[in-house]
Nucleic acid binder design. Structure first.
Length: 821
DNA sequence: TTGTCGGTCCTTTTT
DNA sequence: GGACCGACAA
């Protein structure tokens, strides 16, 4: 089986290790220069196999190797295939060594996938690509090489969010600022935001600086950075910012990398933030006359990370940054049915700031289902109905692995989990609390870190009294002061202090034990296999015993996790190697063998695809989310719409959308309006599902009778009272922002024409909490609630009523949902 | 030093 | 409704 690579000489690694200043050897250049000619030398009539399956646009994106290229790749148009084939093509045509290609992704998952797929194309040569990885992992690699240029030692540690918050808290307290009023977590987020924008302490806008801790924002940021330096540590943002500073301050170093990276490729370009953009521009923009072989792939319609600093503008201004750039659109979709594509395309057309792509497919099959819209009474019924749908598919021999439930917010998952547990339906939650973030794992890692890196004060503080050794705040504080005063690590300070009389006997003894333990472990570091050492550390420190003696329900699971942690170290050469890996890769592999429905947020679904997709919770306030509307205005709404677009385009064959009329939010039942996005779906590609169970038809047992129960079952969801009431409310509050735009947004589904409908940006839940207004109800009033039935008011706070319901017991509800009887 | 009570928060999340 | 954090008392 020939894939066109069999006889191409690949170089596993650059003739290592070479001084940086030395120029890369040019790969054996084919005399003609262009790829096609190189290939033709081997095969006169036929392009290599790896190119033959591509459509013309994809092929252009792969073969345009000279100069800047922007590939606008819609959902399901073979984006990853283009990227990987392009790399294969660069290698096959001997344009560069594997080590001369810089390929950047956002997530480790994407990097892994890319590596795998390139491996399939080119075999072992992929192992020679050290510069393929996430922005952050490449940043680490650069920094380890040149740490001293930014004032670090190359053994620097990488702090995760948890460490950062604890560190910032210390700094806030040290400045004598009230850390209740000015929470460290909030400031950590501010710093992260600044770093995303590429701001150092000197660069932050005056307003930002003033907004925290009575104007001390800048000062605090500066002391945080100073503290990181003394700790020889970086946070995630620094992994980008330090290289940027370094490249700016040392053009000679930058030049070396210009020479080195002959080809630069960037995945998911729409997600780059300003810092990443600056980083990339430094590396990709070359002096005039030198080749700028940069290729960015992205989809502006799938930009859903604006809230964490991603700048869609980066994709929009690519052509300005790289004059003469070739822009290639991939619009042929290989994933979904025409109905799903039609629905998605029509929805996303409501956005204004777009580059404008329209997905199409040749595949038409009269048997394909349209996108189904379902209504349910409340979230419980929604979960029940989705469960039934899944079981039905299962009976038709569909795999659970091919189905996914994509929610807007993670609290929605719970209802589905509960339901699936009762049904005995396998499910897997993706993106929940992650392995390496668990308490016991972080504790264990702190031990390992401190052994490898005795200067890691954060690790020291974390475990010095875990398990309990009688070393409380007082002891730690005095250690801290001593260490700061002498500018030495805390572990060293501890070693000093136990030699003196400054401490009381008890803490002194404990501290002595700690110091001795760590000394011994450090001695074992080079001689003992690292998994064995890890076990020794956990045993001797008393950490495993701590959990063995713990009678709580989680303890056995935590011990299990610790074992798993040690097992996972086997794959690494050393403890240091392991720590480096997990500092950047916080995810652990999921069990793929189990056949299970996936439950995840829309955000984590990006890049995935499923035969059948369920999209619950399409209600105003939830999706689009109220906060996105309040804080993001028009652009917030557009990002929500892109999220909806991402959701729809995950589906290959079947897509079911749900909305409910009642949802419990923050413990209170609220009645909800169907999402405006439902109005934006095209009639031609959508079916409103028959609901024999919703509303009228379903027996809700002894739970409060609905006043609609006596009526006829509804023909379809759009004629249900919830929907009608919703539409009524919408027209009542008409503020028409879009109505006059032509062509889009005016089609409606299954209900009568009534003129342009309101599409307000600040679409609100029906009721909001209002504390100040006097209530129109009195204690003792007899009232009716749509879900809970009749009851008496037991208490009133603002518009929140406490009601003793005849059947449902005591509940707190908003006064908008009850009426006097 | 440890356990319990009460107040607050509640979108999305990678590195 | 419930998880998490900090203050407070034993």
């Amino acid at each position: 089986m020939s894939n066109g690579f069999d006889d191409i000489p690949f170089f596993d690694e650059e003739p290592a290790p070479r001084p940086l200043r030395g120029r890369e050897p040019a790969p054996p250049a084919p005399s003609g220069g262009i790829a096609a000619r190189a290939m033709a030398a081997r095969d006169q009539h036929r392009a290599p196999d790896y190119l033959s399956g591509l459509n013309p646009e994809q092929r252009e994106a792969v073969e345009t190797l000279d100069g800047p290229v922007l590939v606008l790749a819609g959902a399901g148009t073979g984006k990853t295939r283009v990227l990987t084939t392009r790399i294969a093509h660069i290698l096959a045509s001997s344009r560069a060594y594997p080590s001369q290609i810089l390929a950047v992704t956002f997530t480790n998952k994407a990097a892994r996938e890319m590596k795998e797929r390139i491996g399939v194309l080119v075999g072992a040569a992929v192992e020679g690509m050290p510069w393929m990885g996430t922005f952050h992992s490449i940043g680490v690699k650069l920094l380890r090489r040149h740490a001293e240029l930014v004032g670090l030692k190359s053994s620097f540690t990488i702090l995760d969010t948890d460490d950062v918050v604890r560190l910032i808290k210390q700094i806030i307290q040290a400045e004598g600022i009230d850390d209740k009023r000015w929470p460290a977590k909030q400031f950590a987020q501010m710093i992260d935001g600044w770093k995303n924008k590429g701001f150092g302490p000197a660069d932050i806008p005056e307003g930002d600086a003033r907004s925290f801790a009575n104007g001390k924002g800048r000062e605090l940021y500066a002391s945080y950075q100073a503290r990181l330096m003394t700790l020889n540590a970086c946070d995630f943002g620094d992994l980008l910012l330090h290289p940027i500073r370094m490249f700016r301050a040392h053009p000679d170093v930058l030049k070396d990398y210009h020479d080195k990276f002959r080809y630069i490729l960037v995945d998911e370009y729409q997600d780059t933030n300003t810092a990443q953009y600056m980083w990339l521009r430094l590396l990709a923009q070359r002096p005039k006359g030198t080749p700028q072989n940069v290729c960015c792939v992205g989809d502006d319609d799938q930009s859903i990370y604006g809230w964490r600093g991603a700048e869609v503008d980066n994709i929009l201004r690519f052509e300005k940054d790289f004059p003469g750039a070739k822009v290639i659109k991939l619009e042929r979709n290989y994933r979904s049915t025409e109905h799903i594509l039609g629905a998605a395309a029509h929805l996303i057309a409501h956005n204004e700031g777009r580059l404008g792509k329209t997905l199409f497919t040749d595949r038409t099959d009269p048997d394909d289902d349209k996108v189904q819209v379902h209504a349910a009474w409340d979230s419980e019924e929604e979960a029940r109905a989705v469960g039934e749908e899944i079981e039905q598919l299962q009976r038709q021999q569909h795999n659970l692995n091919d189905m996914a439930i994509l929610v807007r917010a993670s609290f929605q998952m719970r209802e589905f989990e509960d339901r699936f547990v009762t049904l005995g339906l396998n499910y897997r939650v993706i993106g929940g609390p992650r392995f390496y973030e668990r308490l016991e794992i972080r504790d264990a890692l702190a031990y390992f870190r401190l052994v490898c890196q005795p200067a890691d004060d954060l690790a020291f503080e974390r475990i010095v009294n875990t398990p309990k050794r009688g070393l409380g705040d007082t002891t730690v504080r005095s250690l801290h002061d001593y260490a700061r005063g002498r500018n030495i690590p805390m572990l060293a300070a501890a070693a000093d202090l136990i030699e003196t009389d400054e401490m009381k006997a008890k803490p002194r003894k404990s501290l002595f034990d700690v110091v001795t333990m760590f000394k011994r472990w450090q001695g074992l570091l080079e001689t003992t296999p690292h998994t064995e050492l890890a076990e020794t550390i956990l045993e001797e420190s008393g950490y495993t015993d701590m959990w063995k003696n713990d009678k709580s329900a989680e303890a056995p699971g935590r011990l299990e996790n610790l074992k798993e942690l040690v097992r996972s170290m086997e794959a690494f050469e050393s403890m240091r190697g392991f720590l480096e890996h997990i500092a950047l890769v916080m995810d652990a592999e999921q069990n793929e063998d189990l056949d299970a429905v996936s439950i995840m947020t829309l955000h984590s679904a990006k890049g995935l695809e499923f035969e059948t997709v369920f999209l619950p919770g399409w209600e105003e306030g939830l999706f689009p989310h109220q906060r996105a509307l309040d804080e993001g205005g028009r652009s917030g709404l557009e990002e929500e719409r892109r999220l909806a677009y991402v959701g729809l385009t995950r589906a290959k064959r079947r897509c079911h959308i749900w909305f409910v009329s009642n949802r419990r939010i923050h413990g209170l039942w609220q009645s909800t309006l169907p999402s405006r996005f439902l109005d934006e779906l095209p009639v031609a590609h959508v079916d409103v599902a028959e609901t024999d169970q919703s509303y009228g038809g379903y027996n809700r047992g002894g739970y409060g009778q609905s006043r609609f129960d006596s009526q006829e079952p509804f023909a379809n969801a759009y004629s249900t009272p919830g929907w009608k009431r919703a539409q009524q409310n919408k027209t009542d509050a008409t503020r028409d922002n879009w109505g006059t735009r032509s062509g889009v947004g005016l089609e409606r589904i299954g209900y009568g024409e009534s003129g342009p409908r309101a599409r307000t940006i600040d679409g609100e839940l029906v009721a909001k909490s209002k504390i100040d207004e006097p209530s129109k109800f009195n204690v003792g009033d007899r009232v009716f609630h749509i879900k809970f039935g009749n009851g008496n008011i037991a208490g009133i706070e603002g518009n929140k009523l406490t009601i003793d319901f005849d059947r449902a017991g005591q509940k707190r509800v908003l006064d908008g949902f009850v009426e006097r009887v």
